[in-house]
Design a protein around this nucleic acid. Structure first.
Lengths: 175, 175
DNA sequence: GGCATAATGCAATATTATAACATAACATAA
DNA sequence: TTATGTTATGTTATAATATTGCATTATGCC
């Protein structure tokens, strides 16, 4: 089923390096337009989030960051990266709408509509751990209406649907 | 604005004791029907979750449980309640669909349709911390359709909308 | 350079959740 | 009735996630 390049789940066949660099470029553009700084650290965190191309936890980002630094250091000696370093970068990226947080996984994923204010629907596969970001006008209208009926002022929306992606539905789990 | 008894947010004016005991009764009925055991511990945890009538964290339940036990003990001496005790009870209640978990808060709340398999929409007030459980057929249809289009098999749905409830929208936050 | 602001480093700790194993309660049949 | 399997709870330790507070460094601007 990796021959469905137009499915909402990215297959193993897509041009990964390209999609990451595209994301970084548009993030840079968004930040420049807004007059906020996509510092090397923030850029690196964004890159790591995109590279995983799946929801990735803050501590996984932290580990990757640390590994990067070891590689960069001439002698391999580096001080440990501390959690706030990562959380602050993630917070910045969330604020600029460059990534999303998946609440039900305590994890983060690159946003496919970088910088835009929007409410996304996530399909999260319990099998392979991948996630797809969708937009549904009907869905958002339904949420808006429900909130309006209740006199509720919306600030943030999370729609997270867990289940099995097409590729994982056939798979039998080996005992 | 506490004179809107038919709003989706419960006011301070509703019959709290009654709504808790109703919830406990129907939980007992559900469990009996299913042949599962609503043990004293599980019942007590369910009661604590309902009593708060807001999303309540596992450790708050734990503290309340501990307080209860101190009250019950003749001499006030009791051993500490440990996290697994609470998490296991919560897990049971989730499994029987007697409570919901609010992912974005890491918290739990009584289910208003006890025992029924359903996908709920939560309006969560950032001002007062209360939450309202809604159903929206349109919303669920939209989610079903989006999933179907993607060939995705749904297992669990979380729709969490954060914002300001009617009562909190007027309120100015004091600096 | 000197200053203000923003960003990062760093240490400690808070909060949420689970693993692993021991014991107790309950159900049922020999 | 106790033997036995099963379910539930207790207990200890630890894992995973996240934040607070303060020190230091980088950046932009005059």
């Amino acid at each position: 089923m990796s021959e469905t390049p137009d499915g909402v789940f990215v297959g193993s066949d897509h041009d990964h390096g390209n999609c990451v660099s595209t994301a970084l470029d548009s993030a840079a553009a968004v930040c420049q337009r807004r007059g906020v700084r996509l510092t090397p650290l923030r850029r690196q965190v964004l890159e790591l989030v995109w590279q995983s191309h799946q929801p990735i936890g803050a501590y996984a980002v932290l580990d990757a960051l640390q590994a990067n630094r070891r590689d960069d250091a001439p002698d391999g000696r580096t001080s440990a990266v501390a959690p706030p370093t990562v959380y602050r970068a993630l917070e910045f990226l969330l604020g600029q709408r460059l990534i999303h947080r998946i609440e039900s996984l305590n994890a983060y994923i690159g946003c496919v509509h970088p910088g835009a204010r929007h409410a996304a629907l996530f399909l999260i596969c319990n099998g392979c751990g991948s996630a797809a970001e969708l937009e549904s006008a009907t869905l958002l209208t339904a949420i808006d209406n429900a909130a309006a009926d209740a006199g509720f002022a919306i600030e943030r929306v999370a729609v997270e649907v867990a289940g099995q992606c097409p590729d994982c539905q056939g798979a039998v789990d080996v005992a």
